[in-house]
Simulated assay, not measured.
Amino acid sequence: MAFENPSREEIKTILEQVGNIAVVGLSDKSDRTSYMVSYAMQQRGYRIIPVNPAAAGQTILGETCYASLAEVPEPVELVNVFRRSEYCAEVAREAVAIGAKILWLQQGIISHEAADIAQEHGMTVIMDRCIKVEDSVTQAVRKG
């Protein structure tokens, strides 16, 4: 069966109800897309938890950065991924292992293997969509 993202209404509900967001591949460089998107989401009130082995132990966006999802010491509901497609299946396995509910692959990232892994374990999967753009759309709908 072909992959299909949740409807805009379902995405809106997810973003309204989500707790902690772990961002896999969050860069400590402010000119990178992962940083800009995560910063915008943080400014909108979302809790961002950085996950990047190259920056583990550092602080990004005022939060401690972890080397892996397994090292995050608190529950993570949504895993937002800024990694190349070939790394996403492993991220999906890690997300399943920590009990995350949603796997979100950012715009331009498609991994049917990762989607299959996550969906087999009851996770909601969103692929090839920017969380910041989707949140902007839901914010506009809420205000409109």
Rank of each mutant, 00 (worst) to 15 (best):
A40F: 06
M41P: 05
M41K: 01
Q42M: 13
Q42L: 04
Q43E: 15
R44S: 01
R44Q: 12
R47P: 01
I48T: 00
I49N: 08
V51R: 09
P53Q: 13
A54N: 15
A56H: 01
E63A: 15
T64R: 13
C65T: 13
Y66V: 12
A67F: 04
S68I: 12
L69K: 13
E71C: 08
E71L: 14
P75S: 13
L78G: 04
R83I: 15
S85I: 01
A89N: 06
A92I: 12
A92R: 09
A92W: 05
R93W: 03
E94Q: 08
A95G: 01
A95P: 08
A97W: 07
G99N: 04
G99Y: 07
K101V: 07
L103I: 02
W104T: 07
L105D: 06
Q106T: 08
Q106I: 03
G108P: 12
G108S: 14
G108Y: 02
I109H: 03
I109Y: 02
I110M: 11
I110G: 05
I110L: 11
H112V: 02
H112W: 05
A118Y: 04
H121P: 11
H121K: 15
H121N: 15
M123E: 08
M123A: 07
M123S: 05
T124H: 03
V125K: 04
I126Y: 09
M127D: 06
K132Y: 04
V133Q: 14
E134L: 03
D135I: 00
